[in-house]
């Protein structure tokens, strides 16, 4: 729960960061998330899971959403209910809910590499959702935590 003087409560209580879809921007995304979640004082392990889920979705966008061209990623963090991250890109349509869980034997024997990050992101958070909206892919991640309960 946020207190009245928390910066996150300004306006809509949401914070937004826009990134270029490049690996070199990931550090900015991490710093942004850490700043945005400072008010809820998460355990390091709780923060780690949310950060990793965010990074996995961003890396997937960087690798696949904008083949051969530049693009942007918009990350919005809001609190209550839970910690909620919304990640938007305007690249090609991709529903990460449809990626099957990895078949480890296949990964090791055939050197299959895809799908790991999305699967991990889905496993790390309590709620994982996707919608296509106005030409954008919108992924939402929600984590219910003692410091930021879902109600």
């Amino acid at each position: 729960m946020t207190k009245p003087d928390d910066p996150l409560k300004d306006g809509s209580g949401r914070r937004t960061l826009t990134l270029r879809a490049e690996l070199s921007e990931l550090d900015r995304a991490r710093r942004f998330l850490r700043d945005a979640l400072r008010v809820v004082r998460l355990e390091e392990e709780e923060f780690y899971k949310i950060e990793l889920a965010l990074v996995e979705i961003c890396v997937n966008i960087i690798r696949y959403a904008y083949p051969g061209q530049e693009g942007m990623i918009t990350v919005t963090v809001s609190l209550d209910p839970g910690v909620c991250l919304e990640i938007r890109d305007s690249g090609r349509p991709f529903d990460p809910r449809r990626v099957p869980p990895p078949d480890w034997d296949e990964h090791v024997k055939l050197g299959r590499k895809n799908g790991l990050g999305v699967y991990l992101a889905r496993s790390l958070v309590d709620e994982f959702d996707y919608r296509r909206e106005g030409g954008e892919n919108v992924v939402t991640l929600t984590q219910c935590l003692p410091a930021a309960p879902c109600g």
């Binding site: 590499k113 790991l116 990050g117």
Partner: peptide, 12 residues
């Protein structure tokens, strides 16, 4: 810290 990229390296 390890991400899926790290896990992938271990698989390789």
């Amino acid at each position: 810290y390890i991400s899926s990229a790290g896990l992938r390296s271990l698989l390789v």
